[in-house]
Design a binder for these strands. Structure first.
Lengths: 386, 386
DNA sequence: CCCATTTGTATATTCATTAAACTAAGTTTG
DNA sequence: CAAACTTAGTTTAATGAATATACAAATGGG
């Protein structure tokens, strides 16, 4: 029962955020255009724009083209008013980036991980962050926040309750990073982050309801409904890797049976490939060299992916399904099998306007997702304090 | 780009709606209490309450108990300011009700259906509605709207695209009813409506994220996330009856294989029961008379339901799962099998705070869901026009 | 060069919430 | 039992946001 009540300050805050959002999305843009598309009065826009100018969140450039009268003043988003740091903690690597406020990567660091003990990983992460901060250009707001994506179950307080592939259990990732760096920290499940990344900067920019499938060592799913990430009661939504697609099927590491990821993850692929194949990359190479066995293997994985996607479409009736993470590298040999399964199984009305795409950001989906989160949070906070 | 802009009128509208909502939820309540819980100033509350009084949406009763000072004036929601009509079109019946604005059923009519040809059903429905209107008490606003729940795929324009069990395809239900009765009409899928019904008036009143499983002749699912019904891109969400749970399993009427509803619907039950059993009710009677075979049958169905619920929980991390529609009648023999499957399969973190319940409204879930929709819509509209 | 047009600003108006003062009607206490 | 205190609710003035209006600035077209 906190923010239920409405008043002028809320109105102003929201309108200011709206104006800023429009500038971010449509720059270069003039005050007059903003008034036009937002429906706000030009005087209102003028006043809000002036505040944003003072806060250095936007800046003016020279006059634009006249359309038969006075030339407009062009406004731009000041994307280097601050910077965000994104961390993707994988099973055998840590990828960290420094981005501007529009999600452009300025600096990128990649570090292989020999082991995944929490203290070791944290020390690596902290070093990477510190070195990004050291290399960061000067700016009005500095580091506006740090985001981290983790392959595991993350609660809304930023604790990692369980990350089987890392061997983590109940680690206070958010608190630890906040204590070290004293900036806002956001922790998200790797699939949720990837979904946000693709939505904001990748393949999902035109869609409202997006299901992002992170097909890696396991399978996780990020669910974006009506343009916002759905997290579930505790933040655990999207564990569809453990959706049962085969009642009496294979045992899964989770203790259940017939889980989706037992059939169509990287692990499942390598298992099917047998002992003489040791990596996804090797298999892709073989497929590129027209190795029929390898191609067939990817086709099989595609089939299994298709069954899960069938369930997703019938459940969510989404605008778009995006397949990302490492298995998306094998798009070439999986896309047709997936489509065929959908055509043959999914309810026909649900298929009609559905968009099936592969990740556009590739290995950056997760890092760019968490930085987008951080930036969004910063902008909201900033718009509030005036 | 329509309702993106904020202004005083919107603020007022929202605050007024908030005040009304509080009165509806917490009546009897005083102006002072409303100011307290809403955070609005008492003068604001006073003014909004006076408008609501003039609109006859609320009324005052005598003074309440003093708490050490002047006695408060008690406010009530005027639940008979208007009435809503709800229709549940089933495969062999039409259930229609007249409710007040709080969802109390005042008149109820039930009509068996011999056949489901659209024109025939429509004529039955129209007659039932007309007779409800004729019996309706006088009121300020009269019929505030008509809602109908249908076992099929309904788009956002209120057309029934496909209702296999009724043999309907592309019928303009909403338009037809609007043309006849000239009041707002809302059409919803039967499971979506049931979800809303349970959320507003039944088992789900305390929860934010609710998955309602309508287990009848087929299976449909209503999805309520963050307190609002999720409908998907076209309105087709929740067709989880056709979620594949057994890759190489039974053929389903939809053309796919291994669909959930092929294992755990009323149809599946009767199929498993064999030729000498012809109805759910008969089986329940046998179970009540300690017929082990019948009990075992329900247990089996419970198991299969459990597998699907496992998928739901891992996907949505909901606060609550509600099982409704006809199979909920056999709760007694299904609840333990379902729980056992969940315990043995579902990720443990997801199980922790999960609430598993059965429908509280029984056969009224759907009708009360659509009337709740209609009332909500009316109240929003009403609060707008001032 | 004059004029219509477009951009943007300055000033006055409107209107919803809030603050403060006040009335109403009760309870508590010495 | 009366004075003091509490609580409920209204009235009046103040605040602040969007808007309406008037206006200044800058430009292109005849």
């Amino acid at each position: 029962m906190e923010t239920m009540t409405w008043n002028q300050q809320i109105v102003k805050k929201n309108n200011k955020a709206l104006v800023l959002q429009l500038i971010i999305e449509k720059e270069p843009i003039s005050r007059a255009d903003i008034a036009q598309v937002s429906g706000l009065h030009k005087a209102t826009v003028s006043s809000l724009v002036n505040e944003l100018l003072e806060e250095e969140l936007i800046y003016e450039s020279g006059p634009g083209e006249s359309s038969g009268g006075r030339r407009p003043v062009i406004l731009h988003f000041n994307k280097v008013a601050g910077f965000a740091i994104g961390i993707d903690i994988g099973v055998n690597y840590v990828l960290s980036v420094l981005t501007d406020l529009k999600g452009n990567i300025l600096i990128e660091k990649n570090q292989p991980l020999a082991q995944t003990v929490y203290s070791e990983v944290m020390s690596t992460v902290k070093n990477m962050i510190q070195s990004l901060i050291n290399e960061m250009p000067g700016s009005r707001y500095g580091i506006v926040g740090i985001g981290a994506g983790v392959p595991g179950i993350v609660n809304k307080e930023g604790s990692v309750l369980l990350a089987p592939n890392l061997g983590w259990k109940n680690v206070q990732l958010k608190t630890d990073l906040e204590n070290e760096f004293r900036v806002p920290v956001m922790i998200e499940n790797e699939a949720n982050a990837g979904a946000v990344g693709e939505q904001q900067l990748g393949a999902g920019q035109d869609y409202q309801n997006i299901i992002y499938i992170s097909a890696g060592i396991g399978i996780g799913v990020g669910i974006i409904l009506n343009k916002v990430l759905y997290q579930g009661r505790n933040g655990f939504s999207g564990e569809m890797g453990h959706m049962i697609i085969d009642l009496n099927g294979k045992l899964c590491s989770c203790g259940s049976r017939g889980c989706w990821e037992a059939y169509s993850s990287e692990n499942a692929l390598l298992e099917m490939a047998g002992k003489n194949t040791d990596s996804l990359e090797a298999l892709i190479k073989r497929a590129e060299n027209s190795d029929e066995a390898a191609k067939h293997l990817f086709g099989e994985i595609g089939n299994y992916l298709g069954f899960g996607i069938n369930n997703i479409i019938n459940t969510f009736n989404p605008d778009q399904v995006i397949i990302g993470n490492r298995l998306a590298l094998a798009k070439e040999w999986m896309v047709q099998p997936i489509r065929t399964i959908i055509e043959n199984h999914t309810l026909s009305h649900h298929q009609k306007e559905l968009q099936l795409d592969f990740s556009k950001l590739g290995k950056y989906s997760t890092v760019l997702g968490v930085t987008a989160f951080v930036v969004e949070n910063f902008i909201k906070e900033e718009a509030r304090t005036s």
